[in-house]
């Protein structure tokens, strides 16, 4: 019970009149990788974004039920800026800011009030190391981040997320815009990161979910159909619909 980092209870989400999430119940284990799978439009990305309240940005969103981080309701008891510091996010398309590599990584810590140069230097190096990109960029920290390759940009974005020392890392199809080699590097990296962080990853690729995750949740049409250990879900799913999806019958 105690090793649940995030507990979601009876979560409904509406975009205006359209219900995008229906009664989701899900517990996310600490320092494990939880994969969210399902066909496009099933609500998995929407669900991911409820975990750090990125849906707040969209007009007309209404949410019922609750999401608790370490027992605290993130929609009531935690201020959104603190929440996002604790629950970091990596997006589908690498989105480095148009500034130097260093400034990208230092952006978060600066936003949270770190000013001292030596401290920032330390954070930047540590984060870039954790994101396994330090060796590639250490000589050009002052160069514009937009000059990096797609895979490097995505690892930079991971480093940027790590720099605010989050507890949870949300990854929204982080490899969908990357080539296979870059994808491999990111997958390796998630294995490393799980020692310190709780990771929730949305992925289109069932192989990826199978390779890296500990638990898997299957979403369909806004509902969570099945949730359990990845091994179990992929070998003996309980629900017919999960089986259909995993065996490729949904396309």
């Amino acid at each position: 019970m105690n090793n649940f980092k995030i507990s979601v209870k009876d979560l409904d989400l509406f975009y205006g009149d359209f219900q995008a999430l229906k009664g989701i119940n899900l517990d996310i284990e600490e320092r494990k990788i939880t994969a969210l799978i399902g066909p496009s439009g099933c609500g998995k990305s929407t669900f991911l974004k409820t975990l750090n309240r990125m849906n707040d940005l969209i007009e007309g969103v209404k949410i019922n039920g609750n999401v608790k981080l370490d027992g605290l309701d993130i929609y009531k008891n935690i201020d959104v800026i603190k929440l996002r510091k604790r629950v970091g996010m990596v997006f589908q398309k690498p989105n480095p800011f148009p500034m130097s590599i260093y400034d990208n990584v230092a952006y978060g810590p600066r936003a949270h009030g770190v000013k001292q140069k030596s401290v920032l230097d330390e954070i930047v190096e540590k984060s870039l190391r954790s994101a396994a990109i330090w060796d590639e960029v250490k000589d050009r920290l002052k160069k514009n981040a937009l000059g990096l390759s797609g895979g490097q940009q995505q690892r930079l974005c991971i480093a940027r997320a790590l720099a605010v020392e989050p507890e949870v890392l949300l990854m929204d199809e982080p490899t969908s815009a990357l080539d296979p080699i870059a994808t491999g590097k990111i997958e390796e990296l998630t294995e490393e990161l799980k020692r310190d962080y709780t990771i929730v990853i949305v992925t289109h690729s069932m192989q990826q979910a199978g390779r890296i995750s500990d638990n898997t949740a299957f979403f369909l049409l806004g509902e969570m159909i099945e949730f359990g250990e990845t091994k179990t879900i992929f070998s003996t799913p309980e629900d017919k619909r999960t089986e259909d999806y995993i065996t490729g019958r949904f396309g």
Binding site: M89, F91, Y107
Partner: peptide, 18 residues
């Protein structure tokens, strides 16, 4: 300005003004 910049920054817990 692409929306991904806004998401990226807010996702790090930066305030709107920042």
């Amino acid at each position: 300005v692409p929306n991904t910049f806004r998401e990226g920054s807010l996702g790090l817990g930066a305030s709107k003004l920042r």
